[in-house]
Nucleic acid binder design. Structure first.
Ligand SMILES: [Zn+2]
Ligand SMILES: [Zn+2]
Length: 735
DNA sequence: AGCACGCCGACT
DNA sequence: GTCGGCGTGCTC
């Protein structure tokens, strides 16, 4: 038997893989890329992924340890999965072992067998024509079930009132036997017919259908209510009919029961779901249903983009501009960008849908890199909501509302309609201050103010979660004259209850709807259509449509207008449009009133008068001038440390190292440039000082080469053990 | 990232 | 004397 080693990726943050001797006596052909193995690593036990075998190792033989066990015979991951993981490891400068953790459900990472997703049930083994002499009528009824279906999961039988004893009796008679299987999602009782498409929708379906079977990125830019979902449904139908699987990715908050039901009721195929509300076993089940091909449609949130699909035919990413597609810690990947890479590998189209596309995607569509599909008309020829800026500069406000806004609210309520008040700030008030000495309640761990909450009363830092009781008197001057300044959703709810005593006021934010279930329940309630006022944060803006809301009031659009972040205006506009789109339907179009101190703000006016697309073009011109994304590529190094000087010094070192490599890899027409280190906008958070260093280049390759080389040296730096740092490729924000 | 080793100050 | 603080180094 000849010598060989197994190359293993382990879940440790080291940018290399590890050689192991095989399990004692295990033949080389037993090792295939994608299997799980147990490895003795340092002083810990880890589950790793086999990448391959080699004749020899660079590592001295006496340092090589044998693997403790091979956990799979058949590889868990296919070569295509491994090659995608390698791409991700390179692109995000993250360890391959850590990256591979994202491909595998938690249970399997802990070494569980695939069959632990199975559930018990009974398989008919006798001919369905058998007419056994059965005593009880219940037993006969049970046998009749099996005459119709040859396999029934145990939980369905208990749900119908059959007992384990009755099943065992049939088993004793040789009619059925116990068998465990992977549960398959139920099919709908009846399939709903497709809707009639308008010509724009039909054209979009046609254009994407034409490129099925090849890679093509498509941007579906469709105004709210223009019927994007119907386009998705009809494309998925085509994909299924070709015997392929469809992957639909949605933002976390968009995976509502209504949406899911719409997909499930349309197709006579199993639909698998993967979202954060599932337990480990349910996740494993969904993953296997997708990977083993039982599920033909997979609907999931960000992390579902990794799920192996043997017959992938189409990827759809809805609300593609949504920030939740970018992971904000650990492996900072963008599910949108990865979906493109995956679609390219599988040679299938990827469809990005949004009413307010990200400037990256819009730019790619405008330059012809993506197919640009537009839906400009609302279904049923509904008029778009009328948006109106209402200046509150030098205007008296009644509990945060301008008088004409309150009048409009009353009018809509009188007509038996619902009103939505949007305020992206939870709590009672964003500030508690002393009238006598000017003291502000600030977080002791952050450069931020504490938010005052009243239900129940406490001060809460939304940046680090630090909480403390509300002081009775000013801690500085002991005056009892301390008061809340500004409005949060709690306070607006109070004010509205006083202003409209006859109308129920419902608050929707993270504090009132803690669970997905609570949100779904509240949503059902709102859907009865009874007049009410909804007050809420961006929770209200995403995912759900409220057909009985005919007036939307936006209270604090100003926060984003002067953001320090270069994407601030883009995100503000997306949010305003999204909130506005919650209102109205065909027969009763909605009104949208935006209270603002800056009614002259040119970009805000552009958004209101000419729409998102026009504003987007204007912002793109600014980005071009400033050579910001999408006209350059960016990576960000962030450091944080309780010791301010240490955090800063780390990035100064990083700058020094980067400066060396960018001379080598930067080109004359594509230089690599550095910005920083500078303190983060909120310099101290959770007791740690934060700094950042931005790296730009118009060429991805040079940027990555520079980062790669610098990263190796950064990891070797000594004396920075207390500094926490990371690289964020294509960061979402620079705050 | 873990985890252990090792070298210094302040306790029984 | 030793308990434990955290700086340093290593993991096939
Ligand atoms: Zn005071
Ligand atoms: Zn804080």
């Amino acid at each position: 038997m000849s010598f060989y080693v197994v190359d293993v990726a382990l879940p440790v943050p080291l940018l290399r893989t590890f050689d192991y001797l095989p399990v004692e006596g295990d033949a080389r052909e037993n090792y295939q890329p994608g299997q799980r193995v147990r490895a003795d690593f340092g002083r810990q036990l880890l589950t790793g992924i086999v990448l391959g075998t080699r004749d020899s190792s660079e590592v001295p033989t006496n340092k090589l340890k044998p693997l403790l066990a091979r956990l799979d015979d058949a590889p868990l991951l296919a070569p295509r999965d491994l090659s995608l993981a390698r791409w991700m490891s390179d692109y995000y400068h993250h360890s391959l072992g850590d990256v591979l953790e994202h491909w595998i459900p938690t249970m399997l990472r802990r070494g569980a067998g695939l069959n632990e997703a199975d559930e018990s049930g009974w398989q008919r083994i006798a001919s369905p024509n058998t007419e056994p002499a059965l005593k009880g009528s219940k037993q006969l009824a049970l046998w009749q079930q099996f005459q119709r279906q040859e396999y029934i999961a145990h939980r369905f039988l208990t749900a119908q009132g059959f007992s384990l004893a009755q099943c065992r009796k049939l088993a004793e008679l040789g009619l059925i036997e116990e068998q465990t299987r992977l549960p398959v999602p139920a099919l709908p009782e009846s399939v709903r017919p497709a809707l009639q498409l308008n010509d724009e929708q039909a054209s979009a379906v046609k254009k994407v259908s034409d490129v099925l079977g090849q890679f093509k990125a498509c941007l579906l830019e469709g105004v709210t209510g223009s019927g994007k979902t119907e386009v998705y449904l009809q494309l998925i139908d085509k994909v299924i009919q070709q015997g392929k699987q469809a992957l639909l990715l949605v933002p976390e908050i968009g995976l509502t029961p209504q949406t899911v039901r719409r997909f499930q009721e349309r197709f006579n195929v199993p639909v698998a779901l993967l979202h954060s509300g599932l337990n480990d076993r349910e996740r494993l089940q969904g993953w296997r249903q997708a990977r083993e091909g039982q599920a033909r449609i997979l609907i999931g949130t960000r992390s579902a983009v990794f799920t192996p699909l043997p017959d992938l035919g189409l990827i759809i990413l809805d609300e593609e501009h949504d920030g939740s597609f970018k992971q904000q810690d650990g492996l900072r990947y963008s599910a949108r960008d990865f979906a493109l890479v995956r679609a390219h590998q599988a040679q299938v189209p990827v469809l990005l849908g949004s009413a307010t596309p990200s400037l990256e995607s819009l730019h790619n569509a405008l330059t012809g890199k993506y197919l640009h599909l537009k839906l400009t008309r609302r279904a049923g020829n509904a008029r778009p909501p009328g948006m109106k800026l209402h200046s509150i500069l030098h205007q008296p406000l009644v509990h945060g509302f301008a008088e004409p806004v309150l009048t409009a609210m009353q009018q809509h309520l009188n007509r038996g309609k619902q009103v939505l008040v949007f305020l992206n700030r939870r709590g009672f008030a964003p500030l508690l201050a002393c009238k006598q000495c000017g003291w502000n309640a600030e977080c002791r761990r952050c450069d931020a103010r504490m938010t005052l909450h009243q239900y129940p009363p406490h001060l809460h830092c939304h940046h680090c979660d630090y909480q403390q009781p509300v002081p009775k008197v000013c801690p500085e001057c002991h005056s009892p004259d301390i008061e809340p300044i500004g409005q949060g959703t709690e306070r607006i709810e109070d004010h509205l209850s006083a202003l409209f005593p006859q109308t129920p006021v419902k608050r929707v934010d993270r504090d009132t709807v803690r669970t997905k279930q609570a949100f779904d329940d509240l949503f059902e309630e709102i859907h009865t259509g009874d007049p009410c006022i909804l007050v809420g944060t961006q929770m209200l803006a995403k995912g759900h449509h409220f057909p009985d809301v005919t007036l939307v009031v936006i209270l604090d659009s100003d926060a984003g207008l002067f953001s320090a972040d270069f994407r601030g205006m883009e995100h503000s506009a997306q949010l305003i449009k999204q909130v506005a789109g919650r209102a109205g339907r065909a027969e009763s179009p909605g009104d949208v009133w935006i209270q603002t101190l800056y009614a002259d703000h040119p970009q805000l006016n552009l958004l209101i008068d000419d729409g998102y697309h026009a504003l987007a073009l204007s912002i793109l011109r600014e980005r071009l001038d400033q050579q910001l994304p999408p006209y350059s590529h960016m990576a960000m190094l962030r450091s944080e440390c309780e010791d301010r000087a240490m955090a800063q010094r780390f990035l100064e070192q990083a700058r020094y190292i980067l400066q060396h490599w960018l001379k080598q890899y930067g080109q004359k027409d594509a230089p690599v440039t550095l910005l920083g280190p500078v303190p983060a906008i909120m310099e101290r958070r959770n007791g740690r000082y934060r700094f950042q260093l931005q790296v730009f280049c118009s060429e991805r390759k040079a940027l990555h080469q520079t980062l790669d080389a610098a990263l190796k040296q950064l990891q070797e730096l000594k004396g920075f053990n207390k500094v926490r740092w990371h690289i964020d490729v294509d960061p979402l924000d620079t705050l």
